[in-house]
Amino acid sequence: MTFKAIINGKTLKGETTTEAVDAATAEKVFKQYFNDNGLDGEWTYDDATKTFTVTE
């Protein structure tokens, strides 16, 4: 399945996608990506659209 992340950061904005077997796996991938890029913020997840949003 394809999962999307919308990034609303102070220094980084945009979208990225990942292929994962479930939402928990996708969340781990996205959180690692955000940690690697120095992002920290509020997380939400919309199961209907398979979209994570992080707002810094």
Rank of each mutant, 00 (worst) to 15 (best):
I6F: 06
D22S: 05
L12P: 05
E15H: 09
T25Y: 06
L39M: 11
N37Y: 14
F30D: 00
E15W: 14
T55Q: 07
T11I: 11
A5V: 14
G41Y: 15
F30T: 00
L39T: 05
E19A: 07
A23S: 08
D36A: 13
F3S: 01
G9S: 11
K10C: 14
D36P: 04
A5F: 15
Y33K: 04
V21Y: 07
V21M: 11
E42I: 13
V54M: 10
T18E: 02
D36T: 09
A48D: 11
F3W: 04
K4I: 12
V21A: 10
D46I: 03
Y45A: 00
T51I: 04
T51Y: 01
A5R: 00
N37A: 13
T11C: 15
Y45W: 02
K50Q: 09
A20T: 04
A26I: 02
T49F: 04
G14L: 15
D47M: 05
N37K: 14
T53N: 05
E15D: 05
T2A: 06
Y33D: 01
G38E: 05
W43F: 08
K13V: 10
Y33W: 15
A23Y: 09
T11E: 09
Q32L: 08
T17C: 14
F52I: 00
L39Y: 12
T49S: 09
D47E: 13
E19D: 09
F30V: 01
A48C: 08
G38R: 06
V29R: 07
A20W: 03
T49R: 06
T25S: 12
E42K: 09
G9R: 06
T16Y: 15
A24E: 11
E27M: 14
D40L: 13
T44Q: 08
K10S: 10
T53R: 05
Y33T: 04
A48V: 10
E27F: 15
F52M: 01
T49E: 04
E27P: 00
T11M: 10
N8C: 14
G14R: 12
K4E: 02
T55M: 07
Y33C: 11
E56W: 10
T18P: 00
T17I: 09
T44P: 01
T44C: 09
K13S: 11
G14N: 07
F30C: 01
I6V: 11
T16I: 15
N8T: 08
E19L: 13
